[in-house]
Amino acid sequence: MMAVIAAAIVIQRNLFAVVVLGGIYSFLMATALVALDAVDVAMTEASVGAGISTVLLLGALHLVRGDEAKPLGRPWLPLAVSIAVGGVLVYGTLGLPAFSDPEAPIHKHVAPRYINESLKETGVPNVVTAVLASYRGYDTLGETTVVFTAGIGVIALLRQRKRKDRDRR
């Protein structure tokens, strides 16, 4: 299903339709994430992907407006490159552990410690929150700073022009 939506996004040239499809895509992704037991992530994806980013894209579309121009050349080269990359990656997956394999390295490293000890050590039943804020506090501080910086960047990019407009008037 998601593959179909993605394919539709590739084909569709009206950007408005693409944005709406993007919203649907995000909701489907959120559903898939619930199915994969990642409820925290699914919640974020539903609110961010389907909510905020759709609104933002629409806002940006309002500013840049429009339909996409017809691609100039025939897209054979990019298609070939993409398919080649995909092929290599599929070959790569053959060496990876199968889905839901309890012996996979990902379940052997730090995860058991997080799951078994976090309630005792932090008193927070939601392991994701505990890891996010406590064990990986530095990471999250960094991420928050990135969000902060991006916000500042947007302000810096979009504010200056406004002042110029005012001067002209």
Partner: peptide, 20 residues
């Protein structure tokens, strides 16, 4: 339980993704 670590990483990645 499913592994919480990737959830944490991706959770923040989504928000950072929208910001970028």
């Amino acid at each position: 339980y499913s592994n919480p670590l990737p959830h944490v990483l991706i959770l923040t990645a989504i928000v950072v993704g929208i910001a970028t």
